[in-house]
Simulated assay, not measured.
Amino acid sequence: MSTLVCALQALDDAENWARLLKVVEAMKLKDADAQYAAFLRESVLEARADPSPDLSSAAAKEYMDAIKATQWERLYAALRGKASNG
């Protein structure tokens, strides 16, 4: 086999591998999308089945603000600890 034929065959093999890798990545993404869609579907069904009363947007904001404040306090405390140990 000539060097040119071998080179063209190797190039073709490389292109096929590149194409195959793209297909594999696309399949992984499709699978991840399907898993996320299933997660969302299950979450919605669970939320709809929850008998607790609805939460107003103001109450939800208040709740999230409290969580954020707690998390910020923990972060600042951790950073202060690193700075003093640093």
Rank of each mutant, 00 (worst) to 15 (best):
Y36D: 07
S57V: 10
D13A: 12
C6G: 05
A18E: 09
E15T: 06
L4W: 03
A14T: 13
A58F: 03
A77C: 03
Q71P: 01
E62M: 09
D12F: 03
K61V: 01
A83S: 06
A49Y: 02
L21I: 09
E42S: 10
L75R: 14
A49M: 04
A14P: 00
A69F: 02
D50R: 05
L29F: 07
I67P: 00
R80G: 06
E73I: 03
L21D: 15
E73P: 00
S43M: 14
L8G: 02
A18V: 11
A26I: 01
C6N: 14
D50I: 04
K30A: 13
E25N: 11
E25V: 04
W17Y: 08
D54R: 14
L79E: 15
Y76V: 07
R19Y: 06
V44D: 05
M1I: 03
R41P: 00
A58K: 11
Y76T: 09
L20M: 14
L11N: 12
D13T: 11
A18P: 00
A69N: 08
A69W: 01
F39Y: 12
S43D: 13
L75C: 05
D65Q: 13
K30I: 02
L29N: 14
A60S: 06
A7L: 12
E25D: 12
Q71E: 15
N16Q: 09
D50Q: 04
A32T: 07
L40A: 07
A14Q: 15
L79V: 10
G86Q: 07
F39H: 08
T70W: 03
K82F: 04
S52F: 02
R48S: 09
V23T: 12
A77T: 13
A47K: 10
N85H: 15
M1A: 13
D54Q: 10
K82M: 06
A34D: 09
K61P: 00
R48C: 12
K28A: 09
R80S: 08
L4S: 04
A66I: 01
T3H: 10
T70S: 13
D31H: 09
A10I: 03
G81F: 02
Y76L: 15
R74G: 05
A69V: 00
P53K: 05
A69Y: 02
Q9M: 07
Y63G: 02
K68W: 02
